[in-house]
Simulated assay, not measured.
Amino acid sequence: MTCDEYQDLVAAHVDGHLNPTEMQAVHTHLQSCVACRERFAEEQEFHLAFAARRVLLTPPPSVMAKLHNALTRESSLLPSWRQRLVAHRVSLFSFFFARRLATAVVVTALILAFWWFPTTTPDLFASAVKQYELATTDQFVFTYVVRDPRKLEQSFNDSGQLDFTTHVLDFRPFGYRIRGGHIVRFNGHPTAVTIYRGPEADIVCLRQRGALPPLPPGALRIGRDLVYTYEQYTVLVIQESDLFCMLVSRLPRDVFLRSFGYRS
């Protein structure tokens, strides 16, 4: 595979839409091409940033006023539309098409308003879960295929890509083996990602420098750690002195906690 050929596939690669033959060719190419690995990392960062934003958007009052006025005008025109439908015997299909078109216009206006007036906050859990999905569906390109925790830790710290000294957790006593690791930009900051293969489910660990941003309510606090159930995932959040760590798994919360000696 050439760089030009990968350029045509990078979007499908990030979205997870490559077939097995394409995925094998991509993996082989990225192992030896630094430029394409960097391109993939850039595309993945944009994809994660887009996916990590909650739809908790409040459009400006002017946009809401225009939308309200447009809906009011549309509502006032409905009787005349019905009269015209009767007078000209317009088909029922055309009526439903017009309504769907009006709905599409309103939805498009909302999307454009949200796009041009972003007041979203990054969702840590959505980004972490996206990393889990990429890693466990073979859409993740491991920069470091290292099984030993200390060797992977050294590879991370020698990479020059992190703004902190990381530590790789050793879960072998609990039955989890490292598959590999990678460094991504997560909410604009370099993040060390380690993937573990376990007897029942994989675990993805993300470590980043700094304090945790505000988190949503609903956590189970165990000592200094926080445990969330996010959709069908369990997320364990650990705040250390100058960095935080997130562990993501599909295991049920109680099973996940017992696996590592926690008492819920």
Rank of each mutant, 00 (worst) to 15 (best):
Cys3Asp: 07
Glu5Tyr: 11
Glu5Lys: 04
Tyr6Arg: 01
Asp8Val: 06
Leu9Arg: 05
Leu9Trp: 03
Val10Phe: 06
Ala11Gly: 05
Ala11Arg: 08
Asn19Phe: 09
Met23Phe: 10
Thr28Glu: 10
Ala35Asn: 13
Cys36Trp: 12
Cys36Arg: 02
Arg39Ala: 07
Phe40Cys: 06
Glu42Met: 08
Glu42Phe: 12
His47Gly: 09
Ala51Met: 12
Arg54Glu: 05
Arg54Phe: 08
Val55Glu: 03
Leu56Ser: 02
Leu57Tyr: 07
Thr58Tyr: 13
Pro59Gly: 04
Ser62Val: 06
Ala65Gly: 09
Lys66Gln: 09
Leu67Phe: 11
His68Tyr: 12
Asn69Lys: 15
Leu71Gln: 07
Arg73Leu: 15
Leu77Trp: 14
Leu78Met: 13
Pro79Ile: 07
Pro79Met: 06
Val90Trp: 15
Phe93Val: 06
Phe95Arg: 14
Phe97Ile: 08
Phe97Gly: 04
Phe97Cys: 07
Ala104Gln: 10
Thr108Cys: 14
Thr108Glu: 11
Ala109Gly: 02
Leu112Met: 09
Ala113Leu: 01
Ala113Met: 01
Phe114Ala: 05
Asp123Trp: 10
Ser127Trp: 03
Val129Phe: 01
Val129Tyr: 03
Val129Asn: 07
Gln131Ser: 04
Tyr132Leu: 04
Tyr132Gly: 01
Glu133Asn: 04
Leu134His: 10
Ala135His: 00
Thr136Glu: 00
Phe140Asp: 00
Thr143Asp: 07
Tyr144Ala: 00
Leu152Lys: 02
Phe156Met: 02
Gln161His: 14
Gln161Cys: 09
Gln161Tyr: 13
Thr165Asn: 12
His167Tyr: 13
Leu169Lys: 12
Asp170Glu: 08
Arg172Glu: 09
Gly175Ile: 04
Tyr176Pro: 10
Arg177Val: 13
Arg177Met: 10
Gly180Leu: 07
Gly180Tyr: 05
Arg185Phe: 15
Phe186Glu: 02
Asn187Glu: 07
Asn187Trp: 13
Pro190Cys: 13
Pro190Trp: 15
Ile195His: 15
Ile195Ala: 14
Tyr196Arg: 09
Gly198Tyr: 14
Pro199Ser: 09
Glu200Val: 07
Glu200Thr: 11
Ala201Arg: 12
Gln208Asp: 02
Gly210Leu: 08
Leu212Trp: 13
Pro216Cys: 11
Pro217Gly: 11
Gly218Ser: 06
Leu220Asp: 11
Arg221Leu: 14
Gly223Val: 05
Arg224Ile: 03
Arg224Tyr: 12
Leu226Glu: 06
Glu231Phe: 11
Gln232Trp: 14
Thr234Pro: 10
Val235Arg: 01
Val235Asp: 01
Asp242Val: 06
Phe244Ile: 06
Phe244Ser: 01
Leu247Val: 00
Pro252Gly: 03
Asp254Arg: 10
Leu257Arg: 06
Arg258Gln: 06
Arg258Ser: 05
Ser259Glu: 00
